[in-house]
Design a protein around this nucleic acid. Sequence first.
RNA 1: GCGGGUGUAGCUCAAUUGGUAGAGCGUCAGCCUUCCAAGCUGAAUGUCGAGGGUUCGAACCCCUUCACCCGCUCCA
Length: 504
Amino acid sequence: MTTNYSMEDLVSLCKRRGFIFPASEIYGGINGFWDYGPLGTELKNNLRDAWWHDMVHCPPMGPDGEPLSIVGIDSSIIQNPKVWEASGHVGGFNDPMVDCRETKSRYRADHLEVIANANGEGRMYAFIEGNEESEERARKLLAKYEKVDALGDEYTTSLLTDIPTDAFERIVGPDTKEAGTLTEPRQFSLMFDTTVGATGGEDNKAYLRPETAQGIFLNFMNVVDTMRVKVPFGIAQIGKAFRNEVTPRNFIFRSREFEQMEIEWFCHEDEAQQWYEFWCDYRKDWWQKIGLTTENLQMRQHDSDELAHYAKEGCGTFDIEYKFPFTDPGYGELEGVAHRGNYDLSRHTEFSGKKINYFDQQKNERYTPHVIEPSAGLSRGTLALLCEAYTPDDRPSKVFMKFNPRIAPIKAAIFPLVNKNGMPEIATKLHEEMRKKHVVQYDAKQSIGKRYARMDEAGTPYCFVIDGDTLEDNTITVRDRDTASQERINIDQAVAYLDDKLIQ
RNA sequence: GCGGGUGUAGCUCAAUUGGUAGAGCGUCAGCCUUCCAAGCUGAAUGUCGAGGGUUCGAACCCCUUCACCCGCUCCA
């Protein structure tokens, strides 16, 4: 299936119908931030609640036929800054980067070396550390520049980071022939920092979490000590995370403030592989269950060179990817299932000096559990649901949102066919009854066709209409969003009818 | 961060060679309407993305800036 609409069409509908707006729009917006409108909030909350229900309150059956044990937490966005040193986010991801103005290439400053004559005068040639081809090229160019056949000992290499910045104009980049094209090393901090306390100052610097996972690791012992859980078990958390992405792009797909739904599944090292496979399969099934179609989903194993620092060992990372309009025919990450080993718990043990492990009484064994992490994007999931639902059609609205009823922002609408002759009274009564259990809307304005069309764009799966016959025989019509077909049911059965349709 | 493009009403878009903005749809109100944006009448909404400059005069030309889109780069 190839996408038959553009992302701009979807963005336009989201704006028009109150799903998603640009953040601080009246001030010209702000790059990488978005606000959820009334319908977008309902949609996102429905996805969030479905996940929480299916993972925490009613988790799946494990391989042994017993339900999994998963508990939830909600940790603080700001933690002690040492957390991010232990996690590897400070240091590992604060790499200074160097850009080449000529070739537009970007390099990590600490991965570049420079070769020059020992007195440090004249041109210097940069190359990529550990890359023979690159180094050879630099040596050749330097030899040519110095007009020598071979470089002797008087030519030495040094780290780019040791070169004073006023000498950069004499450096030739790894992929260019001109000197002075490299920028000064610039810090790319992908974490937002902030200041705790009213007095401010560098000593009070803290970070907005770049992932919710660490909050779970921090509370591992608290949960073990209070919840009577036994390994294997999981801790789930949903919440905001913040990353200073270099290039926010593609609507809410890559934004700087986003929401994650993460489970850290703690297990014994010997069982990690088995659980890893379990979670890969289960999580893909779950996305299908929530309404994404098979042909738009794919599983992709990470190559070894793209693995995160915490996933270097163990069985790697699987991405569950969705075919978004802007990635089509490719796919974009929706959820990553990573084997984090015992990296995080070990690091926190090391950095905090506190005991973080698990004692298995039956086996009489104390160990640091391994972790399988199904980490899903709530924002990205919401976007995938919007993309999946967007259905161009020849009906009056030209498009309708084919949400799975379970996650639809509005479950049903109640209309009097005509706004008189006793119909509004009956419709109002039905609306008041239905809204006690479900998100429903009442609409009596304008023609019935317009009202159906409005609900089509909002993705409301059912419309109940009170008409002339209702006055005679107590029946109403139900109109199905996807087919526009109608059936008659007794008004007394309307609530049960909707209940039934929403249980899936 | 780089290159290209775009920015006019809630949405989609017009506005001749620079002469202080329009349409369709939507929204709202009234009438009318017994099942798919119907009909009639009427209404509201824009500092033309923002700031500066050139000009007698700028939506239009120039500069700066912001946001969005596409391609690089990045994406723990």
